[in-house]
Measured scan of single mutants.
Amino acid sequence: GKMTGIVKWFNADKGFGFITPDDGSKDVFVHFSAIQNDGYKSSDEGQKVSFTIESGAKGPAAGNVTSL
């Protein structure tokens, strides 16, 4: 299901970062391709987002990331 969290950091040059879930669980990796914004796929530190957890090649990753 959908979770909410805060972007801990995001490196636009490398195209990835981490989200800290609101439920206190482990930080989740986020790749720019998962960000659902139109246009520039980046996110700012401290941005509140909703997301799903997908199982990626390197473990859990955020999917369907949407700014709230």
Rank of each mutant, 00 (worst) to 15 (best):
G1P: 13
G1L: 13
K2Y: 13
T4W: 07
G5R: 00
G5K: 00
G5Q: 01
I6D: 03
I6V: 13
V7D: 04
V7Y: 05
V7G: 01
K8R: 09
K8T: 06
K8M: 04
W9G: 03
F10Q: 03
N11H: 07
A12D: 08
A12N: 09
G15Q: 03
F16K: 00
F16A: 01
G17W: 03
G17T: 02
F18V: 06
I19Q: 00
I19N: 01
I19T: 00
T20Y: 05
T20C: 11
P21I: 05
P21S: 04
P21W: 04
P21C: 07
D22Q: 03
D22W: 05
D23P: 01
G24W: 04
G24N: 06
S25R: 05
S25P: 03
K26W: 06
F29I: 03
V30L: 14
H31C: 10
H31Q: 04
H31A: 05
F32S: 10
F32C: 12
S33I: 05
A34V: 09
A34Y: 05
I35F: 15
I35H: 03
N37S: 13
N37A: 13
N37P: 11
D38S: 14
G39P: 11
G39A: 10
G39M: 11
G39S: 11
G39Y: 11
Y40P: 08
K41A: 10
K41Q: 10
S42I: 14
S42Q: 09
D44M: 15
E45H: 14
E45Y: 14
E45L: 14
E45P: 15
G46S: 07
G46P: 09
G46K: 08
Q47G: 09
Q47Y: 11
Q47A: 12
Q47F: 09
K48I: 08
K48Y: 10
K48R: 15
V49T: 01
V49S: 01
S50I: 09
F51T: 02
F51Y: 10
F51S: 02
F51E: 02
T52R: 04
T52A: 03
T52E: 06
I53R: 04
I53H: 05
I53A: 01
E54K: 09
E54R: 08
S55E: 14
S55T: 13
S55D: 12
G56A: 08
G56I: 04
A57I: 12
K58V: 08
K58Q: 10
G59V: 03
G59D: 03
P60R: 12
P60M: 09
A61L: 12
A61P: 02
G63P: 01
G63N: 12
N64C: 12
N64P: 02
N64A: 07
V65F: 00
V65P: 01
T66I: 12
T66E: 10
T66F: 07
T66W: 06
T66N: 08
T66Q: 11
S67G: 09
S67D: 07
S67W: 15
